[in-house]
Computed example of a mutant assay.
Amino acid sequence: MFILGYLVIKFGFTNRFGGVSAGAYESLNLGEHVGDDLEKVRQNRDILRQNLGVKKLVFMEQIHSDKVEIFKDENLPPCDGIITNLKDVAICVMVADCMPILVAGKNSVAAVHAGRAGITKKILTKTLNLMAKEFSEFEFEIYVGPFIQGSCYEVNGLDLGEFNIYKNGKNFDMKKALEAEIKALKNYKFNKIEISNTCTHCNSEYFSYRRDGTTGRFCGYIYIS
């Protein structure tokens, strides 16, 4: 929790513990699209909502795009970035190796799903630009939760265009690519940037698609209290 401007903002990242799912999804799986029992997923989401003490959780239908939407207490189209200025509404990004990026401004917050597609399409830049346009945001704090680190993220011979400079042999370093993207954003001020060094592929406290195949999803959440 922190206070930014006149807002009290709370955020965090779940792990795989504290829920009711079983088997490959044990236990706090928050993804409805991975083959888990949907009733158990709904129970897990309600466990999270009650623990946070918010009136509502908002999850995206993530599509590995650069599409960013503003949530205004209505249905949300498929996207990979969500922005809101509503209070007591926790916006969530689900991951199991991708980067869960949380952004706090002075008037709004955002949750961003950034895997290889999101990073190479610069979805964070698009999110910040929309926050600036809609909510006059020019100062930010950025928090990135656990994700697959460059030493484990194999993309083999995949051509990433301008992002090939962030490849080391057959591996792609999303952290270096994101840091370079942020550094290039000269029109904004970043009061804090925290990027996790925890690798989901190596750490069994988190779901990892690359490690396990069939698995659940943990999330990053952020909300205005």
Score class of each variant (00 low, 15 high):
I3G: 08
L4I: 12
Y6W: 09
L7M: 12
G12F: 07
T14W: 09
G18H: 05
G23L: 05
A24W: 12
A24D: 15
A24N: 12
E26V: 06
S27W: 04
S27F: 07
N29I: 02
G31L: 09
D36P: 03
D37T: 06
D37S: 09
D37W: 02
E39G: 15
K40R: 15
I47D: 10
L48K: 05
R49C: 07
Q50D: 10
N51M: 13
N51D: 11
L52G: 08
L52P: 07
L52N: 11
G53F: 06
L57W: 03
Q62D: 03
Q62C: 02
I63T: 15
H64K: 14
S65I: 01
S65G: 02
S65Q: 05
K67M: 08
E69M: 10
E69W: 02
I70D: 04
I70H: 03
D73R: 14
D73P: 04
E74V: 11
C79P: 08
D80P: 10
D80A: 07
D80F: 08
G81E: 06
I83A: 07
I83V: 09
D88F: 12
D88M: 13
V89E: 14
A90C: 12
A90L: 11
C92T: 15
V93A: 13
V95I: 15
A96G: 07
C98N: 15
M99L: 15
P100I: 05
P100C: 09
L102W: 08
V103Q: 11
V103D: 12
N107Y: 12
S108K: 07
A110L: 03
H113G: 09
A114Y: 10
G115A: 15
G115L: 08
G118Q: 06
T120E: 12
K121N: 13
K122M: 13
L124W: 07
L124D: 10
T127Y: 08
T127V: 13
L128V: 08
N129H: 12
N129Y: 12
L130H: 03
M131V: 02
M131K: 05
A132S: 14
E134P: 03
S136W: 04
S136F: 12
E137L: 01
E141S: 13
V144T: 10
V144I: 13
P146Q: 11
Q149L: 06
G150L: 11
G150S: 09
S151E: 15
S151A: 13
C152M: 05
C152H: 12
E154D: 11
N156G: 01
D159L: 05
L160Q: 06
N164C: 04
N164P: 07
Y166L: 10
K167N: 04
N168A: 04
G169P: 01
K170I: 01
K170P: 11
F172W: 02
M174W: 02
K175N: 04
K175A: 00
A177G: 02
A177Q: 02
L178T: 03
I182Q: 04
A184W: 00
A184R: 11
L185H: 06
K186M: 01
K186V: 06
N187V: 00
I193C: 03
I195G: 02
N197W: 00
N197R: 03
T200N: 00
N203V: 00
S208G: 02
Y209L: 10
R210A: 00
D212K: 05
T214N: 06
T214D: 04
F218M: 04
C219T: 13
C219A: 14
G220M: 02
G220Q: 06
G220L: 04
I222L: 08
I224C: 04
